[in-house]
Simulated scan of single mutants.
Amino acid sequence: MIHTSPTVSMSARDIRKTFHRSHGWFAPPSETRALQGVSFDVQPGEIFGIVGESGCGKSTLARVLVGLEEPDAGSLSLAGRDLFGPGVSGVPPVRRGIQMVFQDPYASLNPRMRIGEAIAEGLAIAGMAKSERDDRVAETLSLVGLSPDASQKHPFQFSGGQRQRICIARALVMEPSFLVADEAVSALDISVQMQILNMLLDLRDRIGLSIIFITHDISVVEYLCDTVMVMYGGQAIERGRTLEVLDNPQDSYTRSLIASVPRLHH
């Protein structure tokens, strides 16, 4: 049975990341301050939304959280254990407790690899026996609404929505405490978006999964997220319970972001 740790919380403090870019011999290098001291907490079983326009730093933050980018400064802890920060070296085993789902389900899967192999890849690296891997893959496919028979097929045999379910299964098979979803529905049709969002809500309720959902779409945040953090220019400019932030935004940027899209309800 796929399970998570329903009592695990996440705490991020003062995360910073600057990218440096060279422009050749005669031009001075430039720098982009993608993250400028971002701090937040996510409670067990919470769906935490991170929202902002393209370039605000939210995707860089996602990549830092899962270890795809190394921060310049700051700390991150999961269940009180540090994943990075002062005094932390190497890759702590607890890092496996955070898994990621990317935006493009077409680019996220190897077209030559069968679905079952793709989902089980992390389990194989962790040393799990093949019979156990096969059972875990079948169980996880069922959890995301797909037949276990899908494991024998290739990505081209699935629709975009089905591929995103497969990508979510690949993350869930590692039994993470946190799922980081970076624009995970923006490449899908509206009707398929709602199916994926409802599935994420169901996963939170059924297995206690905590989710960090990153998006540019306020209406998605309103539908899905318990709490929200608004980002602009690499900074967290507003955070709080979702409906409180949307009904009474304190920052002018948040107000303009809300005004730019229709609200689902008031």
Rank of each mutant, 00 (worst) to 15 (best):
H154P: 00
E222F: 02
V185D: 02
F156E: 12
I212D: 00
S219Q: 10
C167W: 11
Y232K: 15
P176C: 07
L203K: 03
M229I: 08
R163Q: 13
M174R: 10
I168W: 00
D226I: 02
L179Q: 08
Q162M: 12
A171S: 15
A171V: 11
V185L: 01
Q157D: 14
L172K: 00
Q162D: 08
E183P: 01
L172S: 09
V180C: 11
L188W: 05
L203E: 05
V185C: 04
Y223N: 07
R204F: 03
M194L: 15
G233T: 09
I190T: 14
I214K: 04
I168L: 06
M194Q: 13
R206N: 13
S159M: 07
A181D: 01
L200G: 08
D202I: 00
V220G: 13
S186A: 15
I211K: 03
V220T: 15
F178Q: 11
I166E: 12
E183H: 13
E175D: 14
L209M: 10
E175M: 02
I190C: 00
E222N: 00
E183F: 07
F178S: 11
I207K: 05
C167D: 13
N198E: 14
S159L: 02
Y223T: 11
F213Q: 08
T227D: 12
H154D: 03
S191A: 15
A169K: 04
L209W: 09
D226C: 12
I218G: 09
Q164Y: 08
I218C: 06
K153V: 00
L172T: 12
A187C: 08
V185K: 07
S191Y: 05
Q193A: 11
G160V: 01
I196K: 04
V221C: 10
Q162A: 09
H154T: 11
L203A: 11
C225L: 02
G161T: 09
F156M: 08
M199N: 02
P176W: 00
D217M: 05
L172C: 05
P155S: 05
R170L: 11
E183R: 04
L200R: 05
Q157C: 05
G161W: 01
M229P: 12
F156T: 09
Y232G: 01
G160M: 04
V230R: 02
L201K: 14
V230P: 08
R165P: 14
G160E: 12
I196Y: 01
C225E: 02
M194F: 14
M174S: 13
D205H: 03
M231D: 07
S186E: 07
Q164T: 12
M231F: 06
V180Y: 09
D217Q: 03
P155F: 09
R163Y: 11
D226G: 12
M229W: 04
E183Q: 08
C167Q: 09
D182K: 06
A171L: 08
A169I: 11
V180T: 10
I190P: 00
S210T: 13
A169S: 10
I168M: 03
M199D: 06
H216V: 09
L200Y: 07
H216A: 07
M231I: 12
V230A: 03
F156Q: 09
F158W: 02
S186Q: 04
D205P: 00
N198T: 13
G161Q: 03
A171G: 09
L209D: 02
L201Y: 05
V192W: 05
C167T: 15
L188F: 10
Y232V: 01
S159K: 09
P155Q: 02
